[in-house]
Design a protein around this nucleic acid. Sequence first.
RNA 1: GUGCCUGUAGCUCAAUGGCAGAGCACUUGACUGUGGAUCAAGGUGUUGUGGGUUCGACCCCCAUCAGGCACCCCA
Length: 423
Amino acid sequence: MKTTIPAVKGTREFYPEQMAVRNYLAEKARQAAEAFGYQEWDGPFLEKIDLYAAKSGEELVKEQSFVFQDRGGELVTLRPELTPSLARMIAARQNELVYPLRWWSFGPFWRYERPQKGRSREFFQWNVDMLGVASPEADAELIAVAATFLKSVGLKPQEARLFVNNRRLMDARFDALDIPPENRLAVSNLVDRRAKMKPEAWEAYAAEVGLGPAQLDGLKSLLADKDLWKTWEELVRLFEAVEALGVRDYVEFDPNIVRGLLYYTGTVFEAFDLTGGVRRAILGGGRYDNLLADVGGEPLAGVGFAMGDVVIGIVLEERGLLPPFPPTPAPVLVTVFDASRWLDSLRLAAELRRAGLNVTCYPEPAKLPRQFKFADRMGMRVVVVCGPDEAAAGQVTLKNLADGTQVQVSRAEAAESIHSMLG
RNA sequence: GUGCCUGUAGCUCAAUGGCAGAGCACUUGACUGUGGAUCAAGGUGUUGUGGGUUCGACCCCCAUCAGGCACCCCA
């Protein structure tokens, strides 16, 4: 026992019940993306570190990447995000691809962080992007994909919501407050930080950033103005489109959403759990119209979002929204009565499989109570017994574990009876 | 990278500085052709590791390792 090697810090082990959750999330993500016509794609899991040097934040590359030297001496990293791979792959075939391009992906990512609630070092992320369209209506579609997903996993508008803002709007308002362009990043960070700080500390931070009392008052009333979006055409059109797409109740304007990533140029949005639990964003995204040009491609407008599997998993777990997953994919157990009937049980199981059923045959002769208990604990629904009595009569016994009833039928019609028992 | 908290049975956790325990789980039986419920019986620990204080340490002190939570950053 003492010699066991623990799992790597920040990784998660997917026992069958956790694997079922992961597959469930991936499947719901697929359905939401495909309902809007997005194509599935993926990039490499290993990339050269240089790919991220250009556009990702300094910290992401220098502090949070799993970097190592390969045998050829090259510095490679387990991918910490997908967007740079997306930009490269699109730039490489920019003239051949069909626009507007709608792509989605679900796969593993790694970031060397201190693990905590909602954050692990190895996680899965759903990415959805549209390139080639610069309209607010395109932004609205991405928001609708996200809202469709939230709805499909059972989250109601009063439980989870997408908060939307626009960087150009905020920049215009910062200008109106005489906040110089070189201070915008610092002020954006200030806004981003507000929810996590005490008011006094936040105001002290504001002074540090260089805001005067009048500017601070202006900023505070700006951030309190829930109707600010009505003054900005892009957002007016976005909300009209969101309404037309049928997800308006999942979307709300919030001037406090700015997001950390540098490459967002217009619309930005984040989804949060409204019911407490986790204070982290479930998903986040926005418009990035300069990214392709920044990696050497022709200018190409883009909008997209990413959702990690960890936070949404916690939210659904805490809200009791995860459906029950049967432990086994086989709802039928064929018992082995004794050694003399062993091979016949194998034959019977094979017959049932040929009839389209997923069937587990108990792997050895054992007392029936043990075999029934096994079926019960594995969540099976029908147990098939073919002992000496049934065999002599050419029949099998079928027991329905849900209600305890059982019937004897001829072996030839066993499969059909089981099908009808399973509904 | 910074701060706080926690390491005791397979799991969740007790134990004033004085004999290391309970629940759950597990195995067996009551029930040798039928699961869940109930009852009974069964055994499991280098108290994370190394040192120190003490007549005596799970408990106090130091170091170390591991984990959790928050910050940072972000999905």
